Amino acid sequence: MSSYPARAVVDLAAIRSNVAALREHAGGVPVMAVVKADGYGHGLVPSARAALAGGATWLGVAQVDEALALRTAGITAPVLAWLYGPGAPLEAAVAARVDLSVAAPWALDGVVVAARATGVTARVHVKVDTGLGRNGVPPAELADLLDAALRAQAEGAVAVVGLFSHLAFADAPDHPTVRGQAAVFADAVALAERAGARLEVRHLANSAATLTDASVRYDLVRPGLAVYGLSPVPQVGDPASFGLTPAMRLEADLALVKRVPAGQGVSYAHAYTTPRETMLGLVPIGYADGVPRHASGTQDRWGGPVQVGGRRLGVAGRVCMDQVVLDLGPDAAEQAGDTVVLFGSGADGEPTAEDWAQVAGTISYEIVTRVGARVPRVVVGDEAVAPTVEADEDLQ
Rank of each mutant, 00 (worst) to 15 (best):
D322K: 11
A69Q: 14
A357V: 03
V325I: 14
A95R: 15
G337P: 11
L145F: 01
L204M: 00
G317P: 04
V201L: 04
G74T: 05
V29P: 06
T274E: 05
S17H: 15
G265K: 14
T274S: 07
F164Y: 15
L211S: 12
V19P: 06
A347G: 10
P30D: 01
R311L: 00
A183M: 12
R194M: 02
A186H: 02
K258V: 09
F169D: 13
P5W: 05
D144I: 06
E383N: 07
A114V: 06
V79E: 12
H42T: 04
R293Q: 13
L83N: 13
G304E: 04
R276L: 10
N18M: 08
M279D: 10
P223D: 02
G39E: 02
T210A: 06
S231M: 05
R123V: 00
V283F: 10
L244S: 10
R312Y: 10
V34A: 05
G286F: 10
V102Q: 09
V306K: 10
L145D: 02
V112W: 06
L146T: 12
L204E: 12
G27W: 01
A373T: 07
G290C: 11
Q323H: 15
L132V: 00
D331V: 09
A56H: 13
A205Y: 02
V9C: 03
Q181N: 09
G361P: 13
D392L: 01
F169C: 14
A183E: 14
G317D: 06
A67Y: 05
V341P: 13
A33W: 12
A384H: 15
T121G: 00
A93Y: 02
A8N: 15
P223K: 09
L280G: 01
I75N: 07
A77Y: 03
G180A: 15
L250K: 02
V340E: 11
D348T: 03
V308K: 07
G349V: 05
M1R: 09
A149V: 04
G162R: 09
R179V: 09
P261Y: 02
H294V: 03
V10D: 13
A172W: 13
Y268K: 01
D109G: 08
E193L: 03
D394E: 13
V380P: 07
L204V: 03
E200I: 04
G381Y: 13
A332E: 05
L22V: 08
T210Q: 08
G372S: 08
E200P: 00
V113Q: 14
I367W: 05
L146P: 06
A226Y: 06
Y84S: 03
F343M: 07
